[in-house]
Design a protein around this nucleic acid. Structure first.
Length: 571
RNA sequence: GGGCGCGUGGCCUAGCCAGGAUAUGGCAGCAGCCUCCUAAGCUGCAGGUCAGGGGUUCGAAUCCCCUCGCGCUCGCCA
């Protein structure tokens, strides 16, 4: 248990005792004041109502029944609140002690023995990842990192859509269009190289009946389980995926497994889903196409039907997704899906269908809104896109220029290495700092922001801490609260002590945007300390301060790592 | 048209789920700070009818209703 948890427990126990003494049985809630005026506070307004007294009078009366002691060093009735203050010396001592003991495992919870499956990214393998879709892998990856730190056994996976018209069309293009007929792609990377074939195939299908018929034929053979066609599609999709993986690798996203949609057709599980759904009382059929009637399940709108087979009996995307979810639930206790907001209805239908099939747990969707460009929606077809690869290049390039501006002592190789860490960090941070459900407008100046509330701000503070420690050399760690009495030191330690509860909130409630915010607060507290308090030249306080710098460095590092951002030792 | 989501200083954003004390930060702007551990930093100033209106409450950015604006969605597509 952390100091802050113990402090809260003590406060709640004292309040309970005081209320008992006043013969009051009303329940109460202790809160952390937003203004930072106290460490914890008890609002006495609802108590006042049930006791038919003035709030301030209640606060004062409660106060008279509470004595300080333990971690509580002061209690004050103010404006109808009862304010509690934590004993600073204990807070400093205990926090640093915990941190020195656990090191980079600070804030890591014991293994819960709960398996969580996080599906994220899953972009259609018909083109490179663009910045609109980039929210998905970055959110999914960071959420997974938070959950791991919260003690869950996390497995991440990418659901590869290797079924359907789009991938068949792409495959047709790659197999039938001679390379001499397509424009050269701007980037020599497999996903980009395939784009011209896909674009041209789309055009040809619109203009040529012959092409359209050929593609329809391949699609029929695909649906019929023609092994040659399936393997051709698979090969092309694998080629595309190779490029996508390179991009994901560049932004520090690594998935544990790739699951192929075609698998659920091949192993018959999609068929089994169809049979099970047909046997339910909600099933109906029209022109040979089967559907579930969902109007009794809160689905609103013109069409409350969830169709799960075509009239020719073949399965649909959502049918296979259902088979996939049954598979996931057989492998995990919790299933989380990171999805674009356009999937909301589909996901709701999926969830109801799973319920009808008797699955007790529900998938937990995490939706994010789309990223648009200042002049409107992104469109791959119209060429109105910014590819993630281009954003990465631009970010690294700009970071390189910034590094070169201030470091003439580094080798080219080292400068590019640092630039990469900073550029990628800036991209991830900029996406993570905003609540997923808020829509984003992509602007280069925001995406490449290196000041203020940004990854480089946090990375810079980390590098400064590393720099001091490098210059200090070996030292004996000291935890002595009497040597760390400056306000800046105490503020910094207070922020450090909040890390475990922030991680818990991020993981348990899937509110990962709180982590960048915490990181900024931490780096800001460190920078203020850095500017005001000398470390290396501080005489008998040197080792105590070096210990604080080292502890700060640890927490900044694990905050960055949980965000999926590298913590550079110099920049 | 129905459903879901969003609307906080010029711009971006926290707080909303679990209503409470002067609404969080950042960018841009203005004024300062490098003979001293990396100035990607620090200090200060200025800037807000929390989209609008009603309601619930001792108390509303937060909960409820209505209106407006924006996004997504309502396929035998994936």
């Amino acid at each position: 248990m952390t100091v802050r948890e113990r402090f809260r427990n003590e406060v709640e126990a004292k309040v309970k005792e005081a209320l008992d003494a006043m013969a009051c049985k009303t329940s109460f809630e202790v809160e952390a004041p937003s203004t930072g005026i106290a460490d914890l506070a008890l609002p006495c307004f609802s108590l006042a109502k049930s006791m038919r007294k003035q709030p301030q009078a209640v606060a004062e009366e409660l106060c008279s029944h509470i004595s300080c002691g333990g971690l509580i060093c002061e209690v004050q009735p103010v404006n109808g609140y009862l304010n509690f203050y934590i004993d600073q010396d204990s807070m400093v001592r205990e926090t640093l002690r915990e941190l020195l003991e656990s090191g980079e495992d600070y804030g890591r919870q014991k293994n819960k023995g709960i398996r969580v499956n996080v599906e994220h990214t899953s972009v259609n393998p018909t083109g490179p990842i663009h910045v609109g879709r980039a929210r998905n892998p970055i959110i999914g990856d960071t959420l997974s990192r938070c959950l791991r730190r919260c003690g869950y056994d996390v497995e991440t996976e990418y659901y590869v859509n290797d079924v359907g018209k789009q991938v068949v069309l792409l495959t047709w293009g790659v197999l039938n269009i001679p390379p001499s007929e397509v424009e050269l792609s701007e980037r020599d990377k497999t996903d980009h190289r395939l784009v011209p074939y896909y674009r041209l195939a789309n055009q040809m299908m619109e203009t040529s009946d012959e092409v359209r018929e050929q593609i329809a034929e391949i699609l029929r053979r695909f649906e019929a389980g023609d092994e040659q066609v399936i393997s051709q599609v698979r090969k092309v999709v694998e080629m595309m995926l190779e490029g996508l993986k390179e991009t994901l690798d560049a932004i520090n996203v690594h998935l544990d497994r790739y699951v192929w949609e075609s698998q659920y057709i091949a192993d018959g599980s999609a068929r089994r889903v169809v049979e099970m759904l047909k046997a339910t009382p909600y099933c109906g059929v029209e022109d040979g196409a089967y559907y579930l009637e969902l109007k009794d399940f809160g689905i609103q709108g013109k069409n409350t039907r969830f169709t799960f087979t075509r009239s020719d009996g073949t399965t649909l995307y959502t049918t296979r997704d259902l088979a996939y979810h049954l598979d996931k639930f057989s492998r995990a206790d919790r299933v989380i899906d990171v999805l674009g907001e356009d999937q909301k209805l589909g996901n709701q239908q999926l969830s109801i269908a799973l319920q009808i099939l008797g699955v007790e747990s529900k998938p937990e969707p995490l939706f994010y809104s789309f990223v648009s460009l200042p002049d409107g929606k992104m469109s791959t077809r119209l060429g109105k896109v910014v590819y993630l690869d281009d954003l990465i290049d631009e970010a690294v390039q700009r970071a390189y220029e910034e590094v070169r501006k201030r470091r003439d002592d580094l080798s080219e190789k080292k400068m590019w290495e640092i630039a990469r860490i900073i550029g990628i960090g800036a991209i991830r941070y900029n996406i993570l700092r905003i609540q997923p459900e808020k829509k984003m407008v992509f602007r280069w100046e925001d995406a490449l922001n290196f000041d203020g509330n940004s990854a480089p701000f946090l990375q810079y503070a980390h590098a400064r801490a590393c720099s001091i420690l490098r210059k200090a050399g070996d030292f004996e760690p000291v935890v002595d609260e009497t040597l760390l009495t400056v306000d800046y030191e105490r503020k910094l330690i207070s922020v450090i002590s909040q890390f475990p509860e922030v991680i818990t909130e991020c993981g348990e409630n899937k509110r990962i945007h709180l982590l960048p915010s915490y990181g900024h607060e931490l780096a800001s507290a460190f920078n203020q300390f850095y500017a005001a308090v000398p470390v290396l030249t501080s005489g008998d306080k040197r080792n105590a301060r070096l210990t604080l710098v080292d502890c700060s460095r640890t927490v900044m590092k694990i905050t960055l790592e949980t965000l999926g951002i590298v913590a550079p030792e110099e920049m």
